[in-house]
Design a protein around this nucleic acid. Structure first.
Lengths: 105, 105
DNA sequence: TTGATGTATGAACAGTTATTCATATGTTTT
DNA sequence: AAAACATATGAATAACTGTTCATACATCAA
């Protein structure tokens, strides 16, 4: 049987999938973005607040949120002037949890 | 209770852990490395063979294997002139599996 | 020892990336 | 409308990264 991009660990996924996978991990491969995601574990938060918690400029946070949004890892909600970001789904927790396991050996 | 770098998704991990986590994901954030790891799903394999399967130079593969080794994702075994690489443990499968789930939505 | 083979590694180059700065967009208040 | 505030974005810069090339190292065969 030919493998068409399945998710089994027993066969090699197709090139396109591996490329997409690398792109996804690239997003997690920056500590500012990881921190933003972890902050959002607690619930939705506005850009300014995230910026203060990380001691990173508003612009930098906004740029990174754009990337997280592009990877469908976060979603947002506008309320007046303020934009609240939150985790898109539970995959983020799972992926970060997976990595934690490897690190804390 | 104070959080000292635990793995729970309910509290924000400490800075050092988040940094290490980002470093780990950086390793997965390159399609050549991801491909090498996926090839190793099937079992151990020598550098030359990996190089041929990926159509990537021996040097490039060796450089990447060095990075994978540094992240403790692969181990190796020398047999004469040949060096056989294999996955260090099952974390690699888990982490890649996690990412796959997010991609194939 | 010499040559052949498999792998590792340092330097250099091209491409990528995260931050900063300036400024634009969108929203509310006066 | 104008000012104030929150966020987004484009350009520029510095730092980082993956590949290539040349070469070194390690092992085996003759």
């Amino acid at each position: 049987m030919i493998d068409h991009c399945n998710t089994s660990a027993e066969s090699i996924p197709c090139d396109e999938m591996l490329y997409d996978l690398a792109e996804l991990y690239k997003v997690f491969g920056d500590s500012t973005r990881i921190k933003i995601l972890c902050i959002l574990f607690a619930g939705e938060m506005c850009v300014q607040h995230i910026s203060e918690m990380l001691s990173v400029s508003q612009s930098a946070v906004s740029h990174q949120l754009r990337i997280l949004k592009g990877a469908r890892l976060v979603k947002y909600r506008r309320e007046g002037k303020t934009v609240y970001y939150s985790l898109a789904d539970d995959h983020v927790r799972e992926i970060i949890g997976c990595g934690m396991e490897h690190i804390s050996e």
